[in-house]
């Protein structure tokens, strides 16, 4: 029964090897989906490219459904996995900072790594910035961030249980929301692409709506 490594069913060397393999597939999927193209990433915020929303929500919902079913069948104990503890204040503040970074920098850490690996110079510079930010955070942690980072502690909170509904129902609602967002973002994208230059369309790997 999973997860295997936290229960010491597989050893740490094998675990790290699996990490490498998962990374390869992860990197492949990100690149193949177009996440190394910074214009595609930014496109979600301006409506001309819905790829990020499509990939992101499909992935999250597929995993959410699969994990709940596997948990029910006893194949995996989700509570033994990396289950994020909620600290809502720093996560919201940090999220806002990341949101600004997303718009200004045009990447997130994972996609920038893929982009840098495939020869995007701006992504290399972006990664340099990320390290600057992390070093800055480490150096100023005690004086600036330690209180904020530990505030709003809620433990390992499940959003469905927090809302007072069942996990399955929450996932179902999210899937409806997901489908609705696909529809809306597709319409938004179509409204842009229908009078976009062919050059831009090629760069984004998009087609005009038929």
């Amino acid at each position: 029964m999973g997860p295997l490594y936290p229960q010491e069913i597989i050893n740490s060397e094998f675990n790290i090897l699996i990490g490498l393999f998962i990374g390869v597939v992860f990197g492949f999927l990100l690149e193949a989906s177009g996440f190394t193209n910074t214009r595609k990433l930014a496109g979600v915020f301006y409506g001309y490219d819905a790829t990020v929303i499509k990939v992101f929500f499909t992935a999250a919902m597929t995993a959410a459904i699969g994990l709940l079913i596997m948990h029910y069948l006893g194949w995996i104990d989700v509570k033994l996995t990396f289950y994020p503890k909620t600290f809502w204040i720093p996560t919201l503040v940090g999220g806002a900072i990341m949101g600004a970074g997303f718009i200004i920098g045009g990447f997130c850490p994972g996609t920038s790594l893929c982009a840098a690996a495939t020869g995007k110079i701006d992504a290399v510079v972006f990664i340099g910035g990320v390290f600057l930010g992390i070093f800055g955070f480490i150096f100023t942690y005690d004086s600036l961030f330690s209180g904020l980072r530990m505030s709003g502690k809620m433990g390992e909170t499940d959003i469905a249980q927090w809302l007072g509904i069942s996990d399955g129902l929450f996932i179902f609602i999210m899937i409806i929301v997901t489908f609705a967002s696909f529809f809306v973002f597709q319409k938004w994208q179509d409204s842009h692409t229908k009078d976009m230059d062919q050059r831009d369309l090629n760069e984004l790997g998009l087609k005009k709506p038929e």
Partner: peptide, 23 residues
């Protein structure tokens, strides 16, 4: 993909919540 998500989404409504497995 859509069909799988929809079927899965409906199926999970009937599943119990995340709970620690007795170990």
């Amino acid at each position: 993909v859509f069909a799988l998500m929809l079927i899965g989404g409906i199926a999970v409504i009937f599943l119990p919540d995340y709970k620690k497995h007795p170990k």
